[in-house]
Design a protein around this nucleic acid. Structure first.
Lengths: 174, 174
DNA sequence: AAAGACATGTAAGCCGTTACATGATTAA
DNA sequence: TTAATCATGTAACGGCTTACATGTCTTT
């Protein structure tokens, strides 16, 4: 699964600009996918060349022109072939857990700082997803609701384990 | 955080061969980091050139020679500077959740297949971590116990959400 | 007979990150 | 006046994946 597959999926709903795609990645998809402008714009050009999408330039006053991309039949086909390809296993990479694992080598103070920072992060991400649930739950498909629940529950679990861990570390402090 | 940082951390415990490093990644670190031979061997060469590790060739009968790598003082220093660098945010990329999000476009049968496969995966990974807990809990540092708990709890949560989701999808079926 | 553990490496290519480059409007 | 939103792109580099290349020993 690459950025291209996800963009192809998004464009099934309506035409998007690169800027809007980025925004969507950071809100709706924040929990399980991300890509920056440095990926999005070159990918859109490539997709246009391949005939998967078509561009419509919309001039604006005092702004760069907007490039609105729509899905073509060929793009729809390409997305179907992605859906038929084998499911890739998920990847999770955590600098935080690596450091925690080697915690003895860094000292207890660093470990507590890292846990605190990770906890702050998890809490703010949870807030965002909770707000999204309040706003959009009814308009989401059953499958989309599972995605959102997964994000919320994973973050709750993460927060719980981190808080318990912090308590244990405090308990064993001299 | 790159493979180099993790290898540097590992070598604090004892000397390793590339083959053993790979094995460790797939067991101990499976939940939050991975790297294949294609990453490990070139990284070890590079680290040796940089003076972070030193190689000792151990000849064997009917086997390729073993290259056992030990940490040098310079490597120890390098690892410390990694620990002092800013904590990177974790990345999670899930082909499964992307597909689920676009589930309407694939049909309910595909969605159920994907959930089933994800569920099987999660259950087998949970078994492995549970076995590891039974085997090694007492010998682990408090911080390492948090890492392991995180893996186990995340997988339990994942399984729970997927099972609930499957039930909901069944309930809404014609 | 096949599969898995032991053991090391290279090369090509893909994909993505980061930094660079530009600039107006609007709200705090 | 600072930050955020709107808006698009390029270029260099870094890092990892995948496939290729080889071979023995042990267990099932």
């Amino acid at each position: 699964m690459t950025a291209m597959d996800v963009i192809l999926g998004l464009l099934h709903k309506r035409p998007f600009t690169g800027y809007e795609i980025r925004h969507t990645f950071q809100t709706l998809f924040a929990f399980f996918f991300d890509a920056g402008y440095g990926t999005i714009y070159p990918t859109l050009s490539k997709m246009e060349k391949l005939g998967y999408i078509s561009k419509k330039a919309v001039p604006q006053e005092n702004r760069p022109q907007k490039n609105v991309y729509s899905l073509t039949d060929k793009g729809r086909e390409q997305f179907e072939s992605y859906l038929e390809s084998p499911l890739e296993k998920e990847t999770y990479k955590s600098d935080f857990l690596v450091r925690l694992y080697f915690g003895e080598l860094a000292g207890a103070a660093s470990v507590r700082t890292w846990i605190g920072s990770q906890l702050g992060d998890a809490r703010s991400r949870l807030e965002k997803l909770t707000a999204m649930k309040a706003r959009s739950w009814e308009r989401m498909s059953a499958a989309q609701q599972i995605c959102l629940s997964m994000g919320i529950e994973q973050l709750c679990t993460s927060i719980r384990v981190l808080e318990e861990g912090l308590t244990k570390l405090e308990g064993s402090r001299a």
